[in-house]
Design a protein around this nucleic acid. Structure first.
Lengths: 199, 199, 199, 199
DNA sequence: CATGAATGAGTCTTCATTCAT
DNA sequence: TATGAATGAAGACTCATTCAT
């Protein structure tokens, strides 16, 4: 990598950083290009050298975060040698919480700012969450087949699972409801998902 | 009520209707006053005769829907003569689904467009959902005391319950995932909330 | 005069009154028809029953005040039996001050609000002040002829006289510089006009 | 100064120029941003690049003119070696007339358009004229002490002096009463101020 | 006479994007 | 690459005036 390329990359990162902070803080619409270039300390034209538009930079932030999150969410491995499904579930939840805890701005952007922005973004969100619920539903189907999971509509239940996770994230990482212990939260969450509220 | 008053009301309703449809369709920001008055077939000034601003009309729509929804959500009555808690739960879910089914635009506005609009709206949403989770958490505490509900953190679990409901609503009434049978959905949802996924 | 006519007149007066107060207080542009009808406690349409437009009511106020003021300003009578010119001058100044003292709102409107409103008003003001300076210039010419007034350009000096009077009015009746004794002010003013500043 | 800076300055000047001309011609309220940008041949946004608002540009014009005028008005120097007070007075009047003669638009704006615009502008005018009358009153007091000026209320007389000057300016530079010889006008004006009308 | 709902031209201002240097 | 001056479409909102009742 040449020096120029490295500079270019750092410039990009610098702008992305400023944008992420601002989008999380003020929201997409309330953040102007002016805000971003002021925070990144670059000229107006320079912004458009690295990004096509305001939308594009938001897009990139979101896509990057989808990728990060996707890595945290793994399909449950039910092959003989794998660790117990419950442990895998736990690990996924912990990985998700770890990512969100480190990138609260992105958590906020994902949960608050990207919602209802426009059709394109709505589609992206739907796709991402769709991939997640597909994983969950598939796991549920396997679970049912194995007799571990009670008979249910795996699709509807997968939405419930996703909704539970999202709402906990919203309260904890976006609203910032107290500085909760992520491990305990994960245990409560998984406890609910597995057992519901009944004794 | 005089004829003039009736006219006035219908005018308001006419504008509110157009605004609701547009906000749901295109989102808050993408909907301009121009769009609203064109859809309502009134003059620019007439809009401001009935509403203070674009924000104000959105506010009114949202507040009205909060009121409607609030009526659907009732505290679970555990006094001797009351019907079984489970039935009450079912009824609440059915009432919510009924309201949302009839007012899909408002469902969309609530779930998509009002999220992350600005601090004022965020506060409103937080307040509304806060009231709902308070009701749920209180019911859980009573349930625990009565030995019906397994020991858990009622707050976290109340978020999970809310999240489950919201996500199902999102998929069904906003994305419009097939024309699902509301009663069946309610049963699946409640099944999950009560029992989780475990057999 | 019929009862209806009397009512009509009082209505007019009521509106004129409100308008005068508001124009003096907030200025022509900052005063809206809404302000006027609210203050006069009449309906929007009623305003246009009595006055053609916002401009028209301002016009009427100004014209009325021109008439009142014009009555206060009298040509100096140099015929044999008349009272001394100096006394006449004094009397005119006192009459002007009396009118302005009673109608401070109109004083303010005349000096502040009517200036630079539009060409039509500028012309009206020019005409009024022109009539006044004509009177003054004519008196000066007679004075020169009689050997009372020093040789000078009567036009320029008439402007100076008018300017002196206007500025004193501005300071005293518009800015309200202390509650000055009108008689003393008049004496100082006339003293200056007659003798200038030299000993 | 870089080329860019020079360009920037000339742009500003170009806009200021157009605005000055328009404000003088049509008045503050009748001049729209549209008029200004059309006259200056710039885009709407460009205007706001250089000026915060319509008010701000008017402000700047007025402040600049106050500064120019203030330089023309000098305190009368009565120290031993100074030129005769009368000559100094003459010089000040000539300087004022010279400035106004060259900037008729600003003369009109000062005398007509800035009057009664709003409280802020009224205050500015009052301050400026207040500084002028303070200078005059102080000179008068010294004159009285030196036995040159007849005993009088220096404040009231200072208003008269200001009023005389303003009215002459109004007639000559704003209404444009003939192409008067400024020197002669100055002499007539000073003659009046010093001696009044009496022989 | 009185009303006040309705009108719509007109205003100021913002801001994402372009492009000559 | 980097700059930032320039652009102009688009936005929300005001208010004098009209007219059907």
């Amino acid at each position: 990598m040449t020096r120029a390329e490295r500079l270019r990359l750092s410039r990009r990162a610098q702008v992305l950083d400023a944008a992420r902070r601002l989008f999380a803080e003020k929201g997409y619409h309330a953040t102007s290009i002016h805000d971003i270039i002021a925070a990144a300390d670059i000229a107006r034209g320079t912004f458009y050298l690295y990004f096509e538009s305001k939308r594009a930079i938001f897009d990139e932030l979101l896509d990057g975060f989808f990728a990060t999150l996707s890595k945290a969410v793994r399909r449950i491995d039910t092959s003989p040698g794998a660790s117990p499904p419950l442990d895998q579930m736990h690990d996924t939840v912990e990985r998700i919480f770890a990512v969100l805890g480190q990138e609260r701005s992105m958590a906020r952007i994902l949960i608050r700012e990207a919602v209802g922005l426009d059709e394109e973004f709505d589609r992206k969100l739907r796709d991402f969450y769709g991939r997640v619920t597909d994983l969950i539903a598939r796991a549920l189907r396997e679970g049912v087949a194995m007799g571990l999971v009670r008979p249910c509509d795996p699709d509807v239940v997968s939405w419930c699972v996703l909704g539970s996770v999202k709402q906990v994230i919203d309260r904890v990482f976006v609203d910032g409801a107290g500085d909760q212990d992520a491990t305990r939260l994960g245990r409560e969450l998984i406890g609910f998902i597995l057992n519901g509220v009944f004794r």
